[in-house]
Simulated assay, not measured.
Amino acid sequence: MSIAVAVVDAETPGNVGTIARAMKNFGLSDLYLVDPPELDPDGEAYGFAGHAREDVLPNAREVGFDYLVENFHTVGCTAVTNEDERRHVRYPFVTPVELADSLRAVETDTCVVFGRERVGLTNDELARLDEVCSIPASADYPVLNLGQAATIVLYELRDVTVAETQLPDAIERASEPELEGLYEELERFLANVNHPVEKREKTMRLWRRLLGRAHPTGRETSTVRGLFRRASGLLEHPERLVDEEDRP
């Protein structure tokens, strides 16, 4: 499966560059342009494209709208939807998250189509596309800038389009021995502050639940353990605190 991006009748070269950059960010490379503005290599399109100026933007293909319909499963992106089953041009529609879920489950070449800055895709254009996608936004002002809208949609598709990100797949949680060491230090601290004996078991259980939900890393666990160890040491030997206060 491959996912391409098409921009129809963009008025501003900078928005084309912004979309190319978002494509580069989220693992896409195939850009199609329908009736594009002039894209001067020294102009704002290339200026806004970041590293996408090296490959995505110069390799963009100018095509007609028919080409998109005839060669791809197409998804038209629009801010305006008719939430009424009696009108089928912009209904039903999916959110970007739902689109990612559906594309993950199929093997088909897809093109995500974005329209003009001021009016977006027309009803006639949307009627020829296979799906409609809309970004949930405030009802008071749901219309996004073309480049912003594309960035949001492509971000949500990242799990489909990006093999590996700069972020780890999961938090490296502290090991059980590391956590048990922290719990031992907490018990020592409770004793040193004369926490009521009858409440210590419940307090320790609450700490276990709290850290169990937090999934602290080894470094976080070690740092917190060190703080409680130091606090307990000063409580057990208050003369150390006096010595530290006397230091210049």
Results as ranks from 00 to 15, higher is better:
V94W: 00
P96W: 01
P96N: 00
P96Y: 02
V97Q: 13
V97I: 08
V97E: 13
E98A: 14
L99R: 02
A100F: 00
A100T: 09
D101Q: 11
D101F: 10
D101V: 07
D101C: 12
S102W: 09
L103C: 10
R104P: 06
R104D: 15
A105G: 06
T108A: 11
D109S: 09
T110G: 11
C111G: 04
V112M: 10
V112G: 11
V113I: 06
V113D: 00
F114N: 00
F114K: 00
R116V: 12
E117Q: 03
E117A: 09
E117F: 10
R118Y: 04
R118V: 07
G120P: 11
G120Y: 00
G120M: 06
G120D: 02
L121W: 05
L121S: 05
T122D: 07
D124T: 09
E125M: 12
A127M: 08
A127H: 11
E131H: 07
V132Q: 01
C133A: 09
I135Q: 06
A137M: 15
S138C: 06
A139R: 13
D140L: 07
Y141S: 14
P142A: 10
V143I: 15
V143F: 03
L144W: 01
N145E: 01
G147Y: 05
Q148M: 14
A149D: 10
A150T: 04
A150W: 01
T151V: 04
T151P: 00
I152T: 07
I152H: 03
I152F: 06
L154F: 08
L154P: 12
L154V: 04
Y155W: 14
Y155V: 01
L157M: 01
R158W: 02
R158F: 00
D159E: 13
D159N: 14
V160N: 13
V160K: 05
T161H: 01
T161S: 13
V162L: 15
T165S: 15
P168G: 05
P168E: 04
D169T: 12
D169G: 07
A170S: 13
I171T: 15
R173Q: 10
R173I: 14
S175G: 12
E176T: 06
E176W: 11
E176M: 09
E178D: 11
E178Q: 13
E180L: 14
E180G: 04
L182M: 10
L182W: 07
L182S: 03
Y183M: 14
E184T: 11
E184Q: 13
E184Y: 05
E187C: 07
L190A: 13
A191T: 12
N192Q: 07
N194E: 15
N194F: 05
N194V: 08
N194I: 08
N194K: 05
P196W: 03
P196S: 05
P196K: 02
P196H: 00
V197M: 09
V197C: 03
V197A: 15
R200C: 12
R200I: 05
R200F: 04
R200H: 06
E201Y: 08
T203Q: 06
T203A: 14
T203W: 05
M204C: 11
W207Q: 08
R209Y: 09
R209T: 14
G212D: 09
G212N: 01
G212H: 03
R213V: 09
H215Y: 10
P216A: 03
P216T: 03
P216I: 04
P216Q: 04
T217N: 11
G218Y: 03
G218S: 14
R219W: 04
R219D: 13
E220A: 12
T223C: 13
V224D: 00
